[in-house]
Computed example of a mutant assay.
Amino acid sequence: MEIERKWMVAGWPEGLPLEEEFFMRQGYISVRPTVRIREEALTGGKTQWILCFKSGGGLAREEIERPIDQTLFEELAAKIIGKPLIPKLRRSYRLADGCVLEVNHVDEGQPGEFWYAEIEYPTIAAAENWAPGALGLGEYLADEVTGQPGQSMGEYWERTRG
């Protein structure tokens, strides 16, 4: 089960220590249900290739992720998807309460480029009770879009590549 909230943001947060950074490429075999591949290259580290299945929407949804090898990733990207993958730069920041804020810059340099932030939680109650203002992030995380139609990466894929 994946439990997360999502916000549209304008750029990287200020004053938070960077924990890690990944360059990613992802594409969709299916949007409903979600079947996605993603390459995750850790800055200064290793690269992983992931096959992901998701169902449901909103605050909590089922998610299954499995590692795949680079060859399968490239074959799926070229032969099944056949469209340009979405590039993303993700930076993670550990917050004072232990949560991890993940901020993503999507399709940099393209007309539709945008930024969003997410936080995953251990329980639905923790997600519902978490308040960005308590950590001084109220202004940065003012535009919450959790569960709003048209705000998922799958829907962005459909608008831009589908």
Rank of each mutant, 00 (worst) to 15 (best):
R38Q: 08
F114S: 05
V106Y: 13
Q26P: 00
E113V: 08
M24I: 11
G45P: 09
E120Y: 00
I68F: 12
R66T: 15
Q26Y: 02
L51Q: 03
K88W: 02
E63Q: 08
I80F: 13
I124S: 04
S152F: 01
R61V: 06
A77Y: 02
E120N: 07
V106S: 15
E113F: 13
R61P: 02
A127E: 05
R91D: 12
D69I: 08
G112V: 07
E63D: 08
T146R: 04
G82Y: 04
G44F: 09
G112S: 13
V145T: 01
C52D: 05
I64V: 13
L72I: 09
Q48T: 15
I29H: 08
P111A: 14
E102H: 09
A142P: 00
V35C: 10
R66G: 14
R38E: 01
R36D: 12
D97M: 08
L72Y: 07
G138P: 04
L101W: 02
K83E: 12
C99P: 01
L59N: 04
G27P: 09
R94I: 03
D97P: 07
K79C: 14
E65S: 12
S55W: 07
I29P: 07
P149A: 11
L89T: 14
T47D: 11
G109F: 11
E63R: 06
L95Q: 00
I119V: 06
L101V: 03
R25A: 12
L59C: 09
Y140A: 02
A142K: 01
E113Y: 07
Q70D: 06
A78F: 00
E128G: 15
L85I: 01
P84F: 10
K79T: 08
G133D: 09
I68M: 15
A134E: 13
W115L: 10
R36I: 13
N104I: 09
G57K: 12
R94L: 05
R36N: 10
A96N: 05
A126E: 11
S152D: 01
G27M: 13
C99M: 06
A125C: 08
E108P: 07
L137D: 09
F73G: 13
E39M: 04
G58E: 03
G56M: 00
F114T: 03
D97T: 11
L85K: 02
L141C: 08
A117K: 06
N129D: 04
E139P: 01
E74R: 08
